[in-house]
Design a binder for these strands. Structure first.
Lengths: 143, 143
DNA sequence: TTCTTGTGTTCAAGCGCTTGAGGTGTGTGA
DNA sequence: TCACACACCTCAAGCGCTTGAACACAAGAA
């Protein structure tokens, strides 16, 4: 059970150091042990929870839901199905988000084509590009 | 040139009403005209800018960059190439983000499988699922 | 005519961090 | 041994919204 600094944990879990301190402040993780000079000492057991929370966070899960997830860890047996569903729900959320991201890429590229046409002072290309922007915008739900 | 309420604009551009007010407060859009009772009246000319900003925002573009984009609209000819590049850069950002999202989905599903195995008290399945979680975590950069 | 419903308004506070200022303790090089 | 870098600390303020409270106005029902 080796000891990790806040920097190590930040790198390995994809959270910033301030975020790790913040999560500890609000009781989402920890309390984390300290060495003689007050520096945090994470152990590998902390990594698993922090990694899971980091991933939940990256998918837009609220602090409240993360608390639920953490609280459920205490009584595994009863809440296993709930945990599974929470995770699957968020996986679906991300899938929806990916679809939206594709639509955004389409819009950005279409709009970039308009500016490219303008850069080359090509009125015909610009008109075509505008058409593509309109379609992309509809895909996004704009109008 | 028909007139739109804040609600119409919010729906058509995918921004919330408070966000639209906020963007006006900080000078990112507008100023927007008002009717006799102080309600905002957007016109269709506003929609194009707001739609573009909304999409930039959705891709994580900072308010500062949005200001640049808007400022560049004033002198189109000189900045056309810059506008195009700004948009393309952000399209690439989203592509990278999508890759990350796929990795997150993998992690969430793997973790869900662990809880599912626990729910069914299936030790063998749980051990296998853990293996998948480890792989998914590596994909995410979690050591 | 009053009363409710709906849509808007402003202003203040909260959220989930991020950034910055200012300080502490440890380790290495001169 | 002293200087300096460096990794960490706390605390406060800022960011980009969101939420909520309290109020204004217009239209239709009782």
């Amino acid at each position: 059970m080796d000891v990790l600094t806040i920097r190590d944990v930040a790198r390995r879990c994809g959270l910033s150091e301030p975020t790790l301190r913040y999560y500890e402040d609000i009781g989402l993780i920890g309390p984390i042990g300290r060495d003689a000079s007050g520096h945090r000492q994470y152990d590998t057991a902390d990594l698993d929870l922090i990694g899971a929370l980091s991933c939940l966070r990256a998918t837009g899960v609220s602090i409240g839901d993360m608390r639920t997830y953490k609280a459920n860890l205490a009584n595994r047996e009863e809440t296993a199905a709930e945990q599974r569903d929470l995770l699957l729900r968020h996986a679906e959320r991300i899938e929806a988000e990916i679809v939206a991201q594709h639509a955004r890429i389409g819009y950005l590229r279409a709009k970039a084509a308009v500016w490219d046409a303008r850069d080359h002072a090509d009125g015909v290309a610009e008109a075509e590009a505008w058409q593509a922007v309109k379609e992309a915008a509809q895909h996004l739900g704009f109008h």
